[in-house]
């Protein structure tokens, strides 16, 4: 019943639903809680941005969805629902069929994710024949068509080249071509432009938006760059220390942040309207995941931390404008609305 209501309400059901995801790594120094109770929804054809600094668990979230964690990492709790089906229960064989077919991923450094001893064409053909029943010639034609789609000129020649013969921007285009051969419904982009120059970054981001429209594909973009997030994301998830700080539309997060970390983050970047204004940094050092505080992950660096922040994890509450934030200050100031959906 609730599902039906939601369909009526949103018009569409989220294509991906992550519910209470926990991921941890077993290390010599103990169990590292990299992701700690993360939930979000992704609607078809929209872009979700996951933003956070190093160690916030944003990449681990992406890898948990794709199940490509390092061997010492494991999802300990939570559901990952793709079209209502829990893919975290999939067998390794099911997952191999699913990965790259329904959801694809591209990485920060295209040089290390392409195989240097095979031509790029070869690698794209491999991706095609893995998921589709086509012959080699057909696959080759499709691969060349895909290279053209991602804006590579002279695709026939590039098809025969090795990764080292291409520039960084071109390699990332090849990665995108490879990721999209099976027309996945979701593309996960893990810091896709961090290694690229700003003019090349603009090319790649535009390409992603163009292809998104064409294939009606949902995108999860993981980045630390608030500029990239602002340009790309419809909705944003802000993470700190493996926990979610707040989530909502891009406008809600940028214009009405309700978590002290998000507020601090936005104040620590240069103000576009007044460049000479002094930056207000977040004091202190990044969090140590081996030694997470009992309460809010951000409390050690928060200038407004209260006693309760140190002791209890803040609940996720709906803000008056409709987005969700987890900060005790909202409870203190009574700045939330009671929301049955979130409570459920």
């Amino acid at each position: 019943m609730a599902v039906l209501e939601q369909i009526l309400k949103n018009g569409e059901q989220p294509i991906l639903k992550v519910v209470d995801l926990h991921t941890s790594f077993t290390t010599d120094n103990g169990e590292v809680q990299a992701v700690n109770g993360l939930s979000f929804n992704l609607n078809p054809g929209t872009t979700l941005g996951i933003v956070g600094e190093s160690g916030s668990g944003k990449s681990v979230t992406a890898y948990s969805i794709m199940r490509i964690l390092e061997s010492n990492g494991h999802v300990t709790q939570g559901k990952i629902l793709f079209n209502g089906e829990d893919i975290s229960k999939y067998s390794e064989k099911q997952m191999a069929d699913f990965r790259g077919n329904k959801i694809s991923i591209i990485f920060q450094d295209p040089m290390t994710s392409l195989n240097p001893v095979y031509t790029v064409g070869n690698q794209i053909v491999e991706a095609i024949t893995l998921h589709q029943q086509v012959g080699r010639e057909e696959a080759k034609a499709e691969a060349i068509e895909m290279l053209k789609q991602v804006g590579i000129n002279d695709a026939e020649r590039r098809f025969r080249q090795y990764p080292h013969e291409l520039s960084g921007g071109m390699r990332q285009r090849v990665m995108i071509a490879m990721a999209l051969v099976s027309k996945p419904s979701i593309l996960i982009a893990d810091e896709p432009t961090t290694a690229l120059d700003v003019t090349i970054q603009a090319q790649i981001l535009e390409l992603m938006q163009e292809l998104q429209k064409k294939y009606h594909m949902a995108i999860i973009i993981v980045t630390h760059d608030l500029g990239v997030i602002a340009q790309m994301a419809d909705e944003i998830v802000v993470m700190y220390g493996g926990r979610i700080c707040e989530r909502g539309t891009a406008e809600d997060i940028f214009y009405n942040p309700c978590h002290e970390y998000t507020k601090g983050l936005l104040k620590s970047i240069p103000n576009v309207d007044n460049m000479k204004e002094k930056l207000i940094p977040i004091e202190g050092s990044p969090i140590n995941l081996l030694n997470l505080p009992k309460g809010c992950a951000f409390c050690a660096r928060c200038s407004k931390a209260m006693k309760i922040c140190l002791e209890q994890v803040p609940p996720e509450l709906r803000m008056p404008d409709g987005h969700l934030a987890s900060c005790w200050i909202n409870v203190r100031d009574n700045n939330y609305i009671v929301d049955e959906e979130a409570a459920a």
């Binding site: 700003v198 003019t199 603009a202 981001l205 500029g227 602002a230 340009q231 406008e251 214009y255 576009v272």
Partner: peptide, 14 residues
Amino acid sequence: LLSAVPVPDPKTAK
């Protein structure tokens, strides 16, 4: 170069 810089403001950026 300047126009390629992603501005951290959703309305301006889009």
